[in-house]
Design a protein around this nucleic acid. Structure first.
Lengths: 312, 312
DNA sequence: TACGGCTATAACCGGTGGCTATGGACGTCC
DNA sequence: GGACGTCCATAGCCACCGGTTATAGCCGTA
């Protein structure tokens, strides 16, 4: 019947939450989108999956019968993809990363493994997937900014770098010449946000936790660094970013300034907790020792206080 | 990894044929579409599935490892859907049909089962699916025009009605007043065709087998009866149709005439050969006895020779 | 060398999956 | 009892995707 596996995930989520609204939140999609997809699935199947009663919903007998298969098939496929990857050349790893390119620590370790003949394929994954391909079997390890959903459960994370959050501003901005900014001063600024599907990361880079309930002003959403800087450079909004990334992406029309009053950001190496292949163990161990016990000295010199100016 | 099951079917087909061109034919899609989908799948997975060599292609080790899982996901889902349907109310059947509405035989038998309290849900399925939902678990039985791919193997068919093929013409057409037409006279007429994805049915209703290699002129494709008659009525082309359907769809601007020199069309009840549920057995048995041993006396009186005129 | 078979690319187009905004039906709370 | 809150469905909109045809490029063969 040519179903999309995504719809199976949706189905399972609604069945677990027994609520479209809650399931939609968990899946990082809007409630109408979820509603529509489930209805389409029911229509395709020819029988209802849920009984919509006021105040609550319940699985129909058919839905209950189908649920285990849906879960199992989705999980089985992800597992098969991982297994298939190991059928490729030995000592090869797929490493996902979401823009965390360029930090010294990673470069060195990756280079070392490459020299030893490993085939490390770096897969640049966009922000739609907060686990950078780990959940779906698309990667064996990933450099992710925390928080990542699933860490502590099916995923294990090792913090590599802890960096202050800075803010990127258009050149002419009234804070562009400041040595630093208090986050409280930014509360009413229009922000460039990650897409909703980025999950908790979106909130993190909007500083939601530090806003004490005040809604952020989202000027627009962007799903790649280029888009973000384009938007900031054009004066459409400002954006938080890790100190290291402020250096990494020099752009003519963008200025970055440290922000006081924000918890630091953490770049971590993440892998599947139940993945016991030698390659993964060796790879992650290399980082664990390089980063030290406490998890991540700052490899980038100059902490907050000295600011960089980018542009001509 | 949120794959679409259709892509897995595509993957399996290419793996079996070891040729994009042949697989595309088998799947009733164009070769570029298949090529693109496979590439997209490989890109999503992060590893190649096929090794493209000049003159032939081969599975990569990863592809070979993934193939069984792909097959299993596709088959497993269809099976789970069928199983789930049986979890619904007992003595209920999903019956697919592709425009074969209205023939006496079916109406009577369906009514009889309905009176006995069975829940027969008729699912009108479009022509894109030549098995009317049987293959994907969307239906337990279906009224189909032969040929249906899979009959003789995983599907069993019982011919219910054998009807001459007529041709529907726009009112002003030069054959519109004829008592009958030889198919040879129609060879150069522009035809309204079923979509390519309809599979063998497309060829059957274009009369390809009786053309002796002469390519049909396809004026346009239509994927519903309404579209077909709209097109014919507008004079865009002509179309073959079963004698019964010529009566069933009276349209002001369309005239139907018998055609000599064409094998008759056969409307069949089709079900899964391995489906041994009591409901299916009882349902199909009712038709088998009603239609008689040889498979389908013509239930519609008036055979070719007496023609109907439709319209004002 | 020309041709034929096969795959990849380009350009285009409709349907689908996502979003926001809003409606409607219940419970709940003042 | 009425206002509100909550939850699901609907409407309208837009971007992307999966399909198409046409064509280019590559290779083996006649």
């Amino acid at each position: 019947m040519d179903v999309h596996v995504r719809d199976l995930r949706y189905f399972a989520a609604v069945a677990e939450e027994l609520s479209f609204t809650r399931a939609a939140e968990r899946l990082y999609v809007s409630q109408p989108a979820l509603s529509k997809q489930i209805r389409a699935l029911e229509r395709q199947l020819g029988f209802p999956l849920f009984e919509r009663r006021p105040r609550e919903i319940a699985l129909t007998p058919q839905g209950a019968a189908l649920l285990p298969a849906a879960r199992e098939l989705a999980a089985g496929w992800a597992e098969a993809v991982r297994a298939a990857r190991t059928a490729g050349p030995a000592e090869s790893l797929a490493v996902g990363m979401q823009t965390a390119v360029g930090r010294e620590l990673q470069r060195k370790v990756l280079a070392r493994f490459r020299e030893r003949g490993w085939r490390i394929s770096l897969r640049l994954v966009n922000w739609e997937d907060p686990t950078a391909g780990l959940a779906g079997g698309g990667a064996d390890a990933a450099f992710c900014w925390l928080p990542v959903p699933g860490v502590g459960a099916e995923l294990t994370a090792k913090v590599l770098v802890r960096e202050e959050r800075w803010v990127a501003l258009p050149r002419g901005h009234r804070f562009a010449d400041r040595a630093e900014v208090a986050f409280a001063e930014l509360l009413d600024e229009p922000f460039v946000a990650l897409p909703r599907s980025a999950g908790p990361l979106r909130d993190f880079w909007l500083g939601t936790a530090e806003r004490e309930g005040r809604e952020p002003v989202v000027a627009l959403e962007a799903s790649s660094p280029e888009e973000v800087f384009e938007a900031v450079g054009a004066g459409l909004g400002v954006v938080l970013l890790a100190e290291g990334n402020a250096r990494l992406y020099p752009r003519p029309d963008v200025v970055s300034v440290p922000v006081r009053g924000l918890a630091p950001s953490e770049l971590a190496l993440v892998w599947r907790a139940d993945d016991d292949r030698r390659e993964v163990a060796e790879f992650t161990a290399a980082f664990r020792e390089a980063a030290g016990p406490a998890g991540g000295g700052d490899r980038h010199g100059g902490r907050a206080g000295q600011r960089t100016r980018q542009g001509t």
